[in-house]
Simulated assay, not measured.
Amino acid sequence: MIDFNKILKDNTYGVLATLDGNRPRTRVFQYLFSDDNKVYFGTTNDKPVYAQIQRNPFVSFCSYSKDFSPVLSVSGKAYFVDDITLKARAMEEYPFIKKMYTSPDNPVFEIFYVDVEEIETYSFEEGPRKYKLK
């Protein structure tokens, strides 16, 4: 099995895909941290991405290294969690988040995780690979 958590930690920026009605929407997002098969992200509850995930929680996040080897996509169901400890961790690990939101109890700051069900990778050495976790 591929260590997708390490790949994400080494390549924190990527593209998050959601559905807006029946239309796909993508935006640049930052991976925060992982806990087993849970991949964490942050956003605010006043953005369209928050409403999109509330309506349809199935998302995909794609990240890649500078040489595009590997390209990694993790997909699954997203869950918002109201956990002050996770918000504090995000602020501790990423000072710019603390600068933006000041405190973990900021009412607009939200944390969500993707319960990873499927991983897809591509590398020039190995080609495409798919892993089902659920």
Rank of each mutant, 00 (worst) to 15 (best):
I2E: 06
D3G: 12
K6M: 01
K9H: 14
D10F: 00
Y13S: 05
Y13Q: 06
V15K: 01
L16T: 09
L16S: 09
A17M: 11
T18Q: 13
D20W: 02
D20H: 09
N22T: 13
R23T: 15
R23L: 14
R25A: 02
T26A: 10
T26G: 12
R27G: 11
R27D: 03
V28D: 00
F29D: 00
Y31S: 07
L32Q: 04
F33R: 06
D36S: 14
K38M: 14
Y40T: 12
Y40C: 14
Y40D: 09
N45F: 03
D46C: 02
K47H: 09
K47P: 02
K47I: 00
Y50K: 12
S60D: 13
S60R: 10
F61V: 11
C62R: 00
S63V: 02
S65R: 13
K66Q: 11
P70S: 02
V71S: 00
V71R: 00
V71Y: 00
G76P: 09
Y79N: 11
V81S: 07
D82S: 14
D82T: 11
D82W: 03
I84G: 05
I84Q: 11
L86P: 01
K87Y: 09
M91N: 13
E92C: 05
E92A: 10
E92N: 14
E93Q: 14
F96M: 05
F96S: 10
K99T: 08
K99D: 07
M100T: 09
T102M: 05
P104H: 01
P104W: 03
P104M: 02
P104F: 03
D105I: 03
D105E: 14
N106V: 07
V108N: 15
E110L: 11
E110F: 08
Y113A: 12
V114C: 05
D115Q: 12
E117C: 09
T121N: 06
E125K: 15
E125C: 07
E126W: 11
P128I: 00
R129A: 15
R129D: 12
K130Y: 10
K130I: 11
L133D: 02
L133G: 10
L133P: 07
K134W: 13
K134R: 15
